[in-house]
Design a protein around this nucleic acid. Sequence first.
DNA 1: TAAGTAATCAATAGTAATATTGATTACTTA
DNA 2: TAAGTAATCAATATTACTATTGATTACTTA
Lengths: 221, 221
Amino acid sequence: MNTSKFKGEIYQQFSRIGRALASPVRLELLDLLCQAPRTVEALAKETTQSLANTSQHLRVLRQARLVEAEKHGLFVVYSLAGDEVCTFFKSLQKLAEVRLSEVRSLAQSLLAERHMLMPVDRGGLFSRIEHGEVTLLDVRPVDEYRAGHIPGSLSVPLADLAEKIAGLPRDREVVAYCRGPYCVLAIEAVEILRRHGFTALRMEESVHDWQAAGHVLQTEE
Amino acid sequence: MNTSKFKGEIYQQFSRIGRALASPVRLELLDLLCQAPRTVEALAKETTQSLANTSQHLRVLRQARLVEAEKHGLFVVYSLAGDEVCTFFKSLQKLAEVRLSEVRSLAQSLLAERHMLMPVDRGGLFSRIEHGEVTLLDVRPVDEYRAGHIPGSLSVPLADLAEKIAGLPRDREVVAYCRGPYCVLAIEAVEILRRHGFTALRMEESVHDWQAAGHVLQTEE
DNA sequence: TAAGTAATCAATAGTAATATTGATTACTTA
DNA sequence: TAAGTAATCAATATTACTATTGATTACTTA
């Protein structure tokens, strides 16, 4: 092995990761898998892609060793190959946010239209959550909640919010969270809650940020 | 702006970064720019690509806002758009190392052939360097040394090593460093030094690791 | 102003990526 | 064993990427 052959091959290897991240569909798949493992069918449905196309994109991700597949009976369950993949995906989002003004303006225009630019006090919020001073809603699908959620949070998937909203205490603030700053679930939840007269806030932080801040997650229901 | 339009566009934006990282040539260009700004001509020469091809790849990197171009007289000097790009590139390398066994085996086979698997004591080395107990050589091109180097290091570009080797003190250990764990310059330097009877070691860490460890760099000569 | 140089542009051939369709495989269960 | 289902495979049309070539632009300097 001479050094110039090494150089050629090592950058080729690095580019496998880049290639895997070059498609919006694959990034959406990764984003979902950061929350919880899923079957191909579930991933296809959530990304509104055909089954075959989803399967093909998953193959690319698997070839880059970013995800793993395991057969469970009739289903193939895909999951992240490791926590470091999620961390890396978050840092990709962060880099895009810092470098691409388009990302910042997209996010801002979505929030501004919905009157959600009001800042949520990040430091104070975590401690208010820990002291049970707010009703904390996890509005992600229930499987993601089961895979890990912030202690004390209630699982109220966005799809079920309408029917569960009557049971929420009206005398205190509601805080909704989902997958992170670029997930729209909490935004939609807050809109619905406000329409029903609640004082509702959206928390940008996800379970990963909660974990990164040194807290532990709760699994199962 | 509805939420599904937002989702479509935000992943599209994230994928701009992925696309930019999908080519081995662009990763090599980024790697070089992590060390120091350069003209198109210099980048073309160092990557052994044609001028036109290099220019095109740089355009892609610029469109992803990972690099910036500034015209200096007849030359266009490209540089990293920010330190966070270098940090991200390093984390891509790290992810590839963790996830891709091919990366680990490529690196290992290169080192094993050259009898360089001997571990360098990372913690101790930094303090021995600070106390001047080793001759520390920066074997990168001189422009990279000028852009920032470890204090106390001598600039001995690999190309000049043969002629400068006579002037090195023979009574103590020589440590060579270059751009990081996947750069071959220090490996080649150590080979030459050993052939001339020196006790030579390769340091995997680069100026970025030195900086990340809380030390300051030295600029200019 | 003319010659020279760095870089980009434009056109193109070859290759690779994407999404669709329909067929096939692998497994479960009636 | 047959029917049903999840997932993959195979073939394909479309689109995008890559590297090359030669022309052009923008600037400097003789």
